[in-house]
Computed example of a mutant assay.
Amino acid sequence: MGLFNRKNPYEKEALDLEAAMRISPERPDLRPRPTAPPLATAPQAPTLQTPAPMPPTVAAPTLPARNGSYGIEDAIKLMRELPDNKKEMVISIVQKTLISAKINVSTILDDAGRKIDRLERKNEKLHQEIRELEEAIIQRKLEMDTNARDIEETREVKLSFESTKRPVLDESFVPAPYIPEQKAG
């Protein structure tokens, strides 16, 4: 309990974080945190007023236990879980909470820059591969067009030869015998 007994300079920010993390109507999937029962006091006369229901709250985010490293992936995951209303206030509170947990926000920002660079390079590589595939498709289509023209020309010639009557040889015709010529001399 030594951690919780110390004076925390961010106590007000932690309370603000708790207030900011109340569930918005857009996030019904989040469950309320259990609250401690009220302290026993002297009995009082019952009143007719019913207490206003407490708005549900979101559990405080837990930090990953990965050798103390906290990167952009963790920050993205955390931001996905937080309510979307009052985004600037939520981001400010998250940054202060990270700082109080001795997590360097500039390290997260550097990690984000590296991730952006890596994804941009990957997109450029994919774009180049698409260009190469599109060029290959164009070449294949040109080859198909050439083949289609060659098929058509071949069919035309074939049909021409098939449709023309073949000459019938007269069986009574006997060719003259071959006699070699003599040289004068």
Rank of each mutant, 00 (worst) to 15 (best):
P64C: 05
T107N: 13
A60V: 02
I130R: 04
Y178P: 08
G71V: 03
Q128P: 14
R6V: 00
A184T: 12
P9M: 12
F173N: 04
L126V: 15
P177S: 08
M89Y: 02
E181Y: 06
A176V: 05
D150P: 01
E81D: 12
K125P: 00
L126E: 15
E88N: 06
T47S: 11
P55F: 00
P175R: 12
P175Y: 06
P51S: 06
T97L: 06
K96F: 03
S24F: 07
P55H: 04
P177Y: 06
R149N: 07
K87T: 03
R33T: 09
I91Y: 13
L48I: 08
K125E: 09
M144Y: 05
Y70P: 02
M21Y: 10
T50L: 10
E153R: 14
E129H: 15
L119C: 07
L17R: 02
I151H: 07
E156A: 09
P56Y: 08
S92P: 00
L39R: 14
V105W: 03
T146V: 07
E152Y: 02
N8D: 10
E156S: 13
L119Q: 04
I93L: 15
Y10Q: 13
L17Y: 13
T164L: 01
E120Q: 14
I130F: 15
I76A: 10
L159N: 07
P38R: 12
L15Q: 08
Y178M: 02
Q44A: 06
A45R: 08
L78C: 10
Y70C: 01
A40Y: 03
L126A: 15
E156C: 10
